[in-house]
Design a protein around this nucleic acid. Structure first.
Lengths: 249, 249
DNA sequence: CGCATTGTTGAACCTGTTCAAGCAGGGTGG
DNA sequence: CCACCCTGCTTGAACAGGTTCAACAATGCG
């Protein structure tokens, strides 16, 4: 049972390390010796690869913290068109938006570990740990900013710009989590646990366009690809320029 | 000075009326006899049509409540491409996302009235009115849900679906605010204070496509247009079906 | 009324899609 | 161990929705 609390704290710590400086106070939202309270309120969930643990439209009873693995969040149109809202990772909060029903489906990319909190317990927790409220707010706030950037991406960016944006976006947390091989402005290798279809549905493109654009980047010496689930950014700076529409090729 | 507090409360009341039931408790976040506190912390701002009152990238000192008029929120790419994030209206909260700098520019559509709160005062207010925190959270939460719908719109919907979505979206608050002429599932007239360019930049299209799609809807008897800034939805149900991808034409 | 601005319409064009075929990798079974 | 197949990825060619460019109409304002 102690495991539950531990893994949540680990997630929070990891997350704090990632956004250096700013989030330090967030760590203090919950003190280590308060962990038993957390443990009492939450339950640990393990979800096998490919399984959905949140379903769009279902009544939103619970709130999750992702403590291991990654998940895709998406919604569907009646004819099957899919838009991926985001990829959740270590430390991410799911089901924040406290509406009556979930606004998206969440599906495990690989095996996923979660801490589940009933919505009812949130109020108790927040009362017990007032700083948690700030944390939740900050989380929502950060999510909003990201969303705004994604509106620009989907509404106005070209395929090249979208894929470049995606790659640099993936690079940031990877660096912080130590998943990527970093080399100070030099090449930077990162895993892509999601399929081409996922990337396409995330970027509002088709798999073919994603594949072709990968091909172009490769030919231009901006990236190199190993086995479709690992990319090396050979020129992160250039990619970043492309992502922001500063440079086009 | 009392005006400031009054207008904010009016905005909050209006807003509550709009989302019947659910938001009643939000009204109670601030009691009428607590208004002087609010007044002390806020300042009233009037912005003439076309003027920016929040600038993307500028340090985010303040937080606003829109108490009159409407505004467009957008961000720009270096080459001038514009994505409209949303249209703010009566009761909307701006600058919620508490990052160091604003993530978007806000520009008055017509003349706009605002209540401005320095970020520093928020903490004081929240301490004084604990329910305000819930309100802020709910606001952010609702914004997130809307954003997710907009990702689907920009990433996967066709031009027809986008414009239909836009029209039904505009219809909802218009009904509640009494700006629209409603007739129970019948025709529904609403003003469009924004230009075609705004609509295009909101929907990730061009003015030409917007114009043409308006033309199609008109020809199909779904809407009728008076002077480009007023539309009547002749078949709201059909438009809603189109918006959700259930029906295509 | 005349000018400027905004919106509409038409035609050529292009980016990204669709459809279709080929390829690579990885696991299975003979 | 290798042929086989299955799935996911890549590549090619035709297509189409939406853009771009350009001309024209409508609106609105001095």
């Amino acid at each position: 049972m102690m495991e539950t609390g531990r893994s949540l704290m680990d997630a929070v710590r990891e997350r704090c390390g990632r956004c250096a400086g700013r989030s330090v106070s967030i760590c203090n939202a919950i003190d280590d010796n308060d962990l038993p309270v957390l443990v009492a309120e939450s339950s640990r969930v393990t979800v096998p690869a490919g399984r959905c643990f949140i379903e769009e439209g279902a009544p939103a009873h619970d709130f999750y913290v992702l403590t291991g693995g990654r998940a895709r969040l998406f919604s569907l149109m009646p004819d099957g068109r899919r838009q991926i809202i985001g990829f959740a990772e270590l430390g991410d909060f799911l089901g924040l938006a406290s509406s009556d029903s979930y606004a998206f489906t969440a599906e495990a990319l690989g095996d996923v570990n979660l801490c589940r909190f009933p919505h009812s317990s949130i109020d108790r927790l927040v009362e017990r740990f007032p700083r948690l409220r700030c944390r939740l707010q900050q989380e929502a706030s950060g999510e909003l900013v990201k969303m705004q950037a994604r509106l620009m991406l989907l509404g106005r960016k070209t395929a090249r710009e979208r894929l470049a944006s995606f790659l640099v976006e993936q690079a940031v947390p990877c660096c912080a989590h130590g998943r990527a091989v970093k080399d100070e402005h030099g090449p930077l290798t990162l895993p892509l646990p999601m399929s081409r279809t996922d990337i396409a549905d995330y970027l509002g493109l088709t798999i073919e366009t994603v594949s072709r654009t990968f091909g172009l980047f490769k030919k231009e010496g901006l990236i190199s690809v190993k086995g479709a689930s690992s990319v090396t950014l050979l020129a992160p700076g250039t990619l970043s320029s492309i992502a922001n529409g500063i440079r086009q090729g």
